[in-house]
């Protein structure tokens, strides 16, 4: 009888330890998700701050490209004002596209391409784009881990009991990204 009690106690302790361990892992992932999200936010803000400078320095060279510039400014203000995750993703994708077309147009102006200020800004923007995509990649990786844990046995039991929900992915809705990848050497 005493042995049975002891075994029962052991099983209970093991269960408790397992519960605590899983719960702590879930909490850790949620924290990382939060910090990844704030990282994305920081980088998006950085991009929003860079754009007025860029527009200001290319304006003088690109008098005939008012429409492109206006598009960029419009896309920026949309992105700044977006509130929920889906709107935000959409607005940011639009901004990325308008910036891309701006740089495509800029290729036609040799003076502009030689301007050190513009070169520096372009480098900063490229870097910010990369940071955003890396931060998003990390966020999505963590979201996937959390979702897997919330859905698979046995961690789903812990997650359900403590109220962990699935995380939303930061989606890319740029049709260009859906196409088959092309290999380029450059």
């Amino acid at each position: 009888m005493a042995i049975m009690g002891f075994v029962l106690l052991l099983v209970l302790v093991a269960l408790l330890l397992w519960f605590v361990g899983d719960y702590n892992r879930l909490v850790r992932i949620r924290q990382e998700l939060k910090s990844a999200w704030s990282q994305i936010d920081v980088q998006l803000k950085r991009r929003h701050d860079l754009i007025p400078n860029l527009v200001e320095s290319v304006k003088g060279y690109m008098a005939h490209e008012q429409k492109t510039l206006e598009n960029v400014i419009k896309a920026r203000s949309q992105a700044v004002n977006a509130s929920d995750l889906k709107d935000k993703a959409q607005a940011e994708n639009f901004l990325t596209q308008t910036l891309r077309s701006l740089f495509a147009v800029a290729e036609r102006y040799p003076d502009l391409k030689a301007n050190q200020n513009v070169i520096a800004l372009q480098e900063e923007l490229t870097s910010t784009e990369n940071r955003i995509s890396f931060a998003r990649q990390f966020y999505n990786d963590q979201a996937m881990r959390l979702n897997t844990m919330v859905e698979t046995v046995p961690t789903n039991i812990v997650a359900n009991m403590t109220g962990f929900a699935k995380a939303e992915f930061f989606q890319i809705e740029d049709p260009g990204h859906r196409e088959a990848p092309q290999v380029k050497f450059n």
Partner: peptide, 13 residues
């Protein structure tokens, strides 16, 4: 410098 910071973000900062 920029690239190093980008990659640092990819590791989760």
């Amino acid at each position: 410098r920029n690239i190093v910071e980008e990659v640092a973000i990819a590791t989760g900062g």
